Amino acid sequence: MKAIRVHEYGGPEVMRFEDVPLPEPGPGQIRVRQRAVGVNFIDIYFRTGAYKAAQLPFTPGKEGAGEVTAVGAGVSGFKIGDRVAYGSAEGTYAEEPVIAAAAAVHVPEGVDDATAAAMMLKGLTAEYLLHRVYRVKPGDTILFHAAAGGVGLIACQWAKHLGATVIGTAGTPEKAELAKAHGCDHVILYREEDFAKRVREITQGKGVPVVYDGVGKATFPASLDCLSPLGTFVSFGSASGAIEAFDIGLLAQKGSLYAIRPTLFTFSSQRPVLDAMAENLFGAVRSGAVRIPVNARYPLAEAQQVHRDLAGRETTGSTVMEP
């Protein structure tokens, strides 16, 4: 089969489209003929070595969807021919990878493969952010950075459906319009405006109870200035670079704030929780409350260009690669 292989950490050019042996699933694993592969910023972190792979060479990728072609020993709940999707697997930049059955969920009727592949990591992230880290409720006003990004477009729609007033940030007028079309009531152009000041203006000085920040370095510590007393700062990514030298005393100075750095992998590590999260996500998508914008499709062989576009913030919504 064909797969993307990384033999050394580095830029997009280190990803090679190679022939590799078709793997056999071991205990607790399934093999999937993928119809679509999801693309996420975490893939860049692993490619560059910001996050270390278990070994070199390795195949990147966490997300995908397709059809089960083989089942390993001890696996229950999946059989050959089942449609599955996953957002926390390993090595999905491949035609037919072996993944842990614990990472997979069944794809219901009415959800196509590209949508399923595009929604799992980002959609499950939105699920735990809005329903588990801070439970968004009617009447809340929230701030979501990078509102036109993959997680942002899903989360802003969902938060609006939950009854929140949604403030988003975006880098360009075009992205601002996209965010408005996906649930944002207010969009701040963070490169041109002081977003903390604008949040205070929008909320009449009160601030917001929660800030969801997947940007990192470029939006910190100003994100803390957007929060009301006892508010929650949720740092779930670092697209602009990692937050450095975090001084926990800032949380006291700015209103007895809470701060959390959650990950999808923690929330999805227990099967009952993953199933509940997936059911919630698929329900929101099938009802029409949340639309999954698949705004770019590439062949798997063009993974280098996909990473260049993603790192350059040239993408909106979700990108999928097709083996």
Rank of each mutant, 00 (worst) to 15 (best):
E127C: 15
G163R: 14
T232R: 00
M120W: 06
K62Q: 15
F17V: 12
E314G: 13
F233K: 00
K62G: 14
L153W: 01
V234G: 00
D247W: 12
V290I: 06
Q157T: 06
A104H: 04
K175G: 03
G283T: 09
P23Y: 15
I260A: 11
P229Q: 03
R297V: 02
E193C: 06
C156W: 04
T315P: 01
K2P: 04
L129N: 10
P323W: 00
P272V: 12
E279V: 08
A116I: 06
E244L: 11
Q305A: 07
A311T: 12
H131D: 15
H7L: 14
A73P: 13
G317R: 04
A101C: 07
T315L: 05
K52D: 03
P173T: 07
L130D: 13
I167K: 12
S76V: 14
I260Y: 00
P262R: 12
D185C: 02
E24I: 14
I292W: 01
P262M: 12
Y86N: 10
G74S: 15
A100D: 13
D140E: 09
G149F: 03
A218S: 02
P173F: 04
Q270W: 07
A147S: 06
A179Y: 01
T125E: 11
S269A: 15
A159Y: 10
M321K: 01
R31D: 10
V105Y: 04
A116R: 07
Q34C: 09
